[in-house]
Design a protein around this nucleic acid. Structure first.
Lengths: 236, 236
DNA sequence: GTGAAGGTTTGCACACCGTGCAATTAGCCT
DNA sequence: AGGCTAATTGCACGGTGTGCAAACCTTCAC
């Protein structure tokens, strides 16, 4: 899949990967603030200037944003059978995307851990999500033959889908991979497709019964929940 | 509401507002790249160093992230009657929040226009959304008595709500305020609550006539090209 | 009113970031 | 081999963001 490329392009890919890996590794070790671009460049054995030929910032190197992945997602979505409702089609694509992701669990969990521990990476991360979302919107608009500038629908489905995926990823990390990512994604989509009814309350069949929780508490009793800090940095 | 503060605090607020206003105004004029922190500080008549006492970056000054607004949102949500389903409660809070926002349409549309024209602001903007989302998650978890670290539900509702609001805002801007923001928000939430069914199939009772003001002379340059290169600045 | 206490503003120094430019190096193709 | 093209590198330079200490307000107590 990468073997019909010349040495030049292979080196390029290698350099990029090397820089990304070095960035993640160093930041995991020392923390973002104690890693300079010079450090990363040195670890990848290239000049600082070359680093900036690949990435326009430290953050970008860590977040990654694979350009070919975008096109692939779009293709996958358009390839789904036309009789699938949009939300189902997106779900299937994302579930399929989750499989290979789960194979490299270790890498991804480390990656996500770094992002969690470094709030200042959040802006970049979310921006990359936004890029995927735009991609999704266009693909959905094409699929449903609606105008994304006039109609809420494609933007809504895309936003809800990304939200579902993001939430699933976050919980996957919280459980440290002990629950299947695909399962979490499916669960999230199922709840969205059901209109996000109140939990624990009434069965979906009868109307929105406001008859309420009664606080049965299905939650597993496992204590834990170390006070998850909720600092979010806005800015650089 | 601000009069029981000493002169000192009033000056602080004034400085902050002044800096924000100057930032937005200057960027709207010259473009982000041609505005330095020094320019902003000068326009607000404070030193550069003082600017950094208020904001940690240019971006933060523009995006804004009002700290008191967060607490207010949380309060509003907890104040909703307990028999409202979570999604409805959030919708009502956000619709209420949209009203005062629509009053200052001009300011907000300018603000949003600046953000749209400057993709490198997107990361910061999304991060501020994320901050609100975390806020929402905690409030929802409290309301539904679920553990946000173990249960998908509060995170899902929060994410979907923010998505609905964000999409509504975007479309509001696309229509330049010609459609009521509150209506758009309600419409978005209604579609979410219905589970985002495929469009065109079942028409809502009150048919939103898709007969649109055919793009006549409205806004020439805004809508970026169809092939809108999904370039999104990730990073600084 | 006066002065101490505590907060804010400011200048200065300094490290890091990100980019344009031009020279050099290395892969590619005939 | 030798020209062509693209990547790498060094250098210079302006902008960013922070620590520190001095100067400068408010506030409050006396």
């Amino acid at each position: 899949m990468e073997h019909n490329l010349g040495r030049r392009d292979r080196k390029k890919i290698a350099s990029r990967r090397s820089l990304q890996a070095a960035a993640v590794r160093l930041v995991a070790d020392r923390g973002l603030k104690h890693v300079t671009v010079e450090d990363i460049a040195e670890a990848a054995d290239v000049s600082v200037r070359t680093f900036f030929n690949y990435f326009s910032s430290k953050e970008e190197a860590i977040v990654g944003l694979d350009p070919e992945q975008a096109a692939e997602l779009r293709q996958s979505l358009l390839a789904r059978p036309a009789d699938e409702p949009p939300l189902v089609a997106v779900r299937n694509v994302l579930v399929a995307l989750a499989a290979p992701l789960a194979e490299r669990q270790e890498d991804w969990l480390l990656h996500m851990q770094v992002v969690r521990q470094e709030p200042s990476l959040l802006p970049s991360l979310l921006a990359s999500f936004a890029a995927h979302e735009r991609n999704l919107i266009e693909a959905l608009a094409e699929r449903t033959k609606t105008d994304p500038d006039r109609d809420l629908y494609p933007a809504l489905v895309a936003a809800a889908s990304m939200a579902a995926f993001r939430v699933a990823m976050t919980h996957w990390r919280n459980w440290e991979g002990k629950r299947s990512l695909a399962h979490l994604v499916e669960s999230a989509f199922a709840q969205c497709a059901a209109g996000l009814p109140a939990p624990l309350s009434a069965k979906p069949s009868s109307g929105r019964a406001p008859a309420f929780p009664a606080r049965g508490g299905i939650r597993p009793g496992v204590a834990a929940a170390p006070g998850s800090g909720s600092h979010i940095g806005v800015g650089r």
